[in-house]
Design a protein around this nucleic acid. Structure first.
Length: 152
DNA sequence: GCCAACGTTGGC
DNA sequence: GCCAACGTTGGC
């Protein structure tokens, strides 16, 4: 099993929004970055565990855990001219963008803030804490996952 | 709201 | 294929 971290702006989609979805499950659409796309297309597998990270908000940090329940498939929001993430270059016959479905596992008892994570020597290799990193989906090693969870 | 970092686009 | 311009991300 692999571990991941996925960012979302809580104003757009928060962990509470995920909790309130039917089956507490949602497709992770709107990713328009090739590196992140490749991870969803090639590497994320059913049962993988994912940290839910709130970005661009008052207290950025890890707020919960979710699980991959459906592996990579075409992101249909790219085909919809009315969608915020419409991409005319993504052809339904040859989709450019992919997504996975994720399901709510639990909300952490507290937010593990970016500030706190940045201060940990054990996490210096986590892309999240590297200067200028903007990846919205990133792998987390098993060691990093266990270390972060122990902070809760 | 500012701005640094970085990915993408497009002219050449 | 280079690289300047531009748009976006996301912390602060």
């Amino acid at each position: 099993m692999n571990y991941w971290l996925m960012k979302s702006e809580p104003d757009a989609f928060s962990i509470d929004d995920l909790y309130n979805k039917p089956d507490r499950t949602e497709h992770w659409d709107g990713v328009r970055n090739y590196q992140a796309r490749n991870m969803m297309r090639d590497e994320m597998k059913r049962g993988d565990q994912v940290f839910f990270y709130h970005s661009n908000c008052v207290e950025p940090g890890i707020v919960g855990i979710m699980e991959v329940v459906k592996e990579g498939y075409p992101d249909f929001s790219a085909f919809d001219p009315d969608d915020k993430h419409f991409d005319p270059k993504s052809d339904p016959a040859n989709p450019r963008w992919m997504m996975v479905d994720v399901s709510y596992v639990r909300t952490l008892s507290r937010t593990l803030t970016l500030k706190e994570l940045k201060a940990k020597e054990a996490l210096v290799d986590l892309p999240l804490v590297k200067r200028g990193n903007r990846l919205s989906i990133m792998p987390v090693s098993h060691e990093q996952w266990a270390f972060i969870l122990a902070l809760e």
